[in-house]
Design a protein around this nucleic acid. Structure first.
Lengths: 161, 161
DNA sequence: GTCCTGTTTCATTTTTTACTGAACAAACTG
DNA sequence: CAGTTTGTTCAGTAAAAAATGAAACAGGAC
């Protein structure tokens, strides 16, 4: 019933990606799934992930959903098999762009709303707003603009140097 | 005993920075502290932060420690006052560099170690390593190299466009 | 020295987040 | 069609992270 033990190589690779999830603030199980797929010589099925990683179906389902959402795993068609087979996307540019679009851009967008409200409050205060505060609000607008223009370029950046 | 209520402007600014902490994966209290300092017309003391934000001394102490660690707050000297006065650093380049150096670079450094172990394991396998796996390991080395060379440039990037 | 004042530390509690597993749905099979 | 396989959802639970507050500490002031 249980899948094969993980090899030392797989364990080490998974460990590396699990460490990366800390930095990125995504759940550990996502790192486990991506790590195993990354080292796999060929695409793996849902139940292989469950049995080899020994995590629940729920976690695998949620994890794959998230990974698909930002393009970090792809589904391969395998003739004669009804199950989906998953493989890791390994193009760095795609991964970075996917992450930015999935995790960062949405935040920037509702930052838009917050900034708007802040601007309204500031206008309401008129002279009640200290010059320092006015300057800070300008900084914020500038930061936000910076982030919004640079975010889409993050992937492309990897081409240049 | 309690500090003045937060103004609507302050609440909104704090809210914005608290939202940012989610994205960056740092504790909420750090966003509150930075947000309040950011909107403050002048530097604030430890106990002002405690009483106006109504969070514990422990949180303020830890939060300021972290913020100082990556250069997001500075301590101002105020003549005749024994207390430290804190102000927000608002130079975007400094903030970005500080964050990268504090949160990202350490991760990259111990990624170094993990990669080394992975390399050793791979060599031990010799022909037991599938060509796909060999390719993946090369990708990893490349990614890591990329990250290490680009990380220090992140701040400078903000000069250009 | 003792007494303040300002800050840090850390064991405990609270809150948040991620994981589990069983029930469910959809799609295929014979 | 009934039965099976494949994958999803979600309420409950477990684990991790953050906040609290009391105690300890540092360094002036007296």
């Amino acid at each position: 019933m249980a899948g094969a033990e993980l090899s030392a190589l797989e364990v080490e690779a998974i460990d590396l990606f699990v460490a990366a999830t800390r930095l990125l603030g995504v759940p550990r199980s996502i790192g486990e799934i991506y790590g195993l797929l990354f080292m796999a010589a060929e695409p793996m099925t849902f139940d292989q992930l469950v049995s080899r990683l020994r995590i629940s179906k729920g976690s695998v389902s949620q994890g794959l959903k998230a990974l698909r959402a930002f393009g970090a795993v792809r589904v391969s068609y395998v003739p004669g098999d009804r199950r989906d087979h998953y493989r890791a996307e390994t193009d760095l540019k795609s991964l970075v762009s996917g992450f930015i679009n999935g995790q960062v851009v949405p935040h920037l967008e509702n930052g838009q709303g917050r900034l708007g409200r802040l601007r309204v409050l500031a206008e309401g205060l008129g002279e009640g707003l200290a010059p320092e505060q006015r300057g800070r609000l300008e900084k914020l607008e500038y930061w936000h603009h910076r982030a919004r223009t640079l975010a889409p370029l993050a992937g492309k950046l990897l081409d240049l140097p």
